[in-house]
Design a protein around this nucleic acid. Structure first.
Length: 695
DNA sequence: GTTAGGG
DNA sequence: CCCTAAC
């Protein structure tokens, strides 16, 4: 049975994280200080800022809890915020009254919270093992909401597969930052704590973080909730890893950076989620209590190797972490997430449930039939609903009076279509996990933000908002953002998406030549040493990330006229399909590596190495020519040689992909023939003595 | 861990 | 690019 579902979160959108925060690295860079000034900010900056909400900073290792936080506690309870939130039902706002800072208001819609089953979190999930799966999104609930929440679900993180969702989105319409200084962590109790469970319409803020026990340590990655900050100041809202560390500059001028190194925290279950999501029960929604869930954690992918070491410098408690690390390596080795499998069953007729529920719909199985067309558009539906908001964040003007700021409010991001396949006998729990994995695959795949203006994609990152016209009010209405598979802009920890995808779809190939090969060729040309060279060194070590279109610098003369290009239909391939006939719960998540076509330079390097070393010594070839190309295994090289030989034998018309110079193909054939001959000779020599002995 | 070959 | 047998 194939289930196809499109997930809608809230208003078909990713949850907007209420609190833009800076990761430590971001704080180091001071990027959070960036403001959006229409006169100085270019499109790229805007992208970076938005992306900052979406992508986890790879460099930020999972942080531990802060001074006031007990390491062993998985639960973050923040009672600092209590009674400071005033929910304005009429306007669907939350007014924040903070000492020392002006009141801020947040648009609130629905709530999203995620309950993770504990064992899933700790044992079954690859993501968990990789620190991806950590805990709950925290929630802030009105008492009304709280009543609706199955307390068991929230309280007991061990519960089975409870994914409770209060779909919703949050609009943060302020420049303010939230600080949670007095968070306390409560071990093993994943309960939402309402400091003042009154029913007066006030909003309680309970933070549920990383619900897992210390025996099931999960590295909290500190991943911010995705999303969108409508913070008009547009400070890069990278998420701080630690709730207690989170110090969100409220004016962009001063950022307190906690110098503590969180990495030392090694006890399990450490990194509390800092996210808060405010919600109110969806009005007029009736009994829609549980909806889809997005946990912030899924916005982060595995940390880099050294990040994984996290916490572990003191050696204590290293065991679980080592375990985790091991898994992480495994994950690393298997490379990044990639669509689980090619879509053989494109959805023909997936529909959105108006409520955003997962409705299981049968999918037409027709393998090749033109479902592609339909599906192809789905990714482009990831566009964020955006509203130009002048109502929010008016405070900023006071900070930087010199520049007029562009104020944006991104209401939500839409989750792209998902295709899910589960056996009929699958349990609901499995279904939930499957969906979660699918979502994770997307989110974990790394996203970048595209900017659209009047339906057209703005490619030129260097243009200022003024130049692009984004700052104009009427244009703001036409401004949109899209989430797209990320590539180079993503931290390495984020899964790169097949570069060819970007090149093929999001980028007109003819106009913007694929960068990897460009890089290769230039580098290669730079050191035209003949034989004996380690060609691999000429090949950039890691082209995990192909430059995204936004990275490319073009001739200014051309970019000007092409700053706006039609939004290409996204390749549905970028979306994930979850095969749910899980052979085993673990292997279900193992994903195919992304396809990385060999560049001409790589082919040349390969040919040269094989000419020298011969076939059958792929490890040597790898070391010699591709030592720095981590993503090329010797098996890859062997396979490539295989295809090269095949390619050389077929007619040019039959060849596909980036054309390989005939000269190279000739060398391939020559070398292949030569080494085949050598091999035959070797075998003969070996057989000779044997036969002699036999005789 | 490598190699070879089928899928 | 994956998988796996064989070494």
């Amino acid at each position: 049975m194939v289930l196809q579902k499109r997930l809608d979160y809230g208003f078909n959108g990713y949850q907007v994280p209420p609190t833009p925060r800076a990761t430590r690295s971001a704080r180091r860079r001071g990027s959070f200080k960036k403001k959006v000034g229409e006169n100085q900010m270019c499109a790229f900056d805007l992208l970076a800022i938005v992306a900052g909400n979406l992508l986890l900073d790879k460099e930020s290792p999972p942080s531990s809890s802060d001074t006031s936080a007990d390491k062993d506690h998985c639960m973050v309870v923040n009672d600092n915020v209590k009674n400071e939130w005033q929910y304005d039902e009429k306007n669907m706002k939350i007014q924040v009254h903070d000492q020392g800072s002006p009141a801020r208001s947040f648009f609130v819609s629905e709530l999203v919270s995620l309950g993770n089953e504990r064992n899933h979190c700790s044992k079954e999930s690859l993501y968990a093992q990789n620190g991806l799966n950590s805990g709950l999104a925290c929630t802030v609930a009105t008492s009304e909401c709280a009543e609706r929440i199955d307390s068991e679900m929230l309280v007991n993180s061990k519960s089975k597969n409870e994914i409770g969702t209060f779909a919703g989105k949050l609009h943060v319409g302020s420049s303010g930052h939230w600080e949670f200084d007095d968070c306390k962590l409560e071990h093993e109790t994943g309960k939402v704590i309402n400091d003042e469970p009154d029913k007066s319409g006030k909003v309680q803020c309970g933070t549920v973080a990383n619900v897992c026990s210390s025996e099931d340590p999960v590295v909290w990655d500190g991943k911010p909730h995705a999303l969108v900050s409508s913070d008009s100041s547009a400070k890069v809202p990278l998420c701080g890893n630690n709730i207690s560390h989170s110090s969100y500059p409220s004016n962009g001028d001063d950022v307190s950076v906690d110098g503590r190194d969180d990495d030392e925290n090694s006890s399990g279950c450490t990194h509390p989620s800092t996210t808060k999501e405010f919600f109110r029960p969806a009005p007029r929604v009736g009994d829609r209590r549980i909806r889809k869930v997005l946990a912030s954690k899924y916005w982060k992918v595995a940390p880099r190797l050294n990040d994984v070491t996290l916490s572990n410098t003191d050696g204590a408690d290293s065991k679980p972490l080592c375990h985790k690390r091991k898994n992480y390596y495994k994950y690393q080795k298997s490379e990044r997430l990639y669509p689980f499998k090619k879509r053989k069953h494109f959805a023909c007729g997936s529909q959105l449930n108006s409520e955003g529920w997962i409705s299981n719909e049968f999918v037409c199985h027709s393998p090749k039939k033109g479902c592609n067309g339909d599906a192809a558009g789905s990714c482009s539906k990831m566009h964020a609903a955006i509203g130009a908001s002048s109502s929010v964040a008016g405070q900023h003007s006071s900070f930087r009076p010199r520049h007029s700021h562009v104020k944006l409010r991104i209401k939500s991001f839409m989750v792209p279509e998902l295709f899910i396949e589960v056996p009929e006998s699958a349990t609901v729990g499995l279904l939930k996990r499957t969906v979660m994995e699918a979502v994770t695959a997307i989110l974990g795949g790394g996203l970048r933000v595209g900017v659209l203006l009047q339906g057209k994609k703005v490619w030129d990152d260097d243009k200022t908002l003024v130049q692009t016209g984004i700052c104009q009010n009427n244009q703001l209405d036409a401004l949109g953002f899209s989430l797209e598979p990320n590539s180079s802009r993503a931290p390495p920890s984020l899964c790169p998406v097949d570069s060819s995808f970007l090149i093929d779809t999001a980028q007109p190939v003819s106009r913007y030549p694929p960068a990897p090969s460009v890089v290769h060729q230039t580098t290669y040309a730079a050191s035209p040493e003949p034989h004996g060279t380690n060609l691999g060194n000429l090949i950039e070590s890691d082209h995990d990330s192909a430059p995204s279109p936004t990275d490319m610098s073009f001739d200014k003369s051309t970019t000007d006229s092409k700053a706006l290009v039609p939004v290409p239909e996204m390749n549905i391939e970028a979306l994930a399909v979850v095969p749910a006939h899980l052979k085993s719960k673990r292997s279900a998540i193992v994903q195919r590596r992304i396809r990385r076509p060999f560049s001409v330079a790589e082919v040349e390097a390969l040919v040269q190495a094989v000419e020298k070393l011969g076939t059958g010594r792929w490890r040597d070839v790898k070391l010699r020519a591709f030592d720095n190309a981590k993503h090329r295994t010797y098996v890859d090289l062997k396979d490539k040689w295989k295809t090269l030989v095949h390619t050389a034998r077929i007619s040019p018309q039959q060849r596909r992909g980036e054309p390989v110079p005939q000269e190279l193909l000739d060398r391939v054939l020559t070398a292949h023939a030569y080494w085949s001959q050598q091999q035959a000779k070797q075998q003969l020599k070996q057989q000779q003595p044997e036969t002699c002995l036999l005789l």
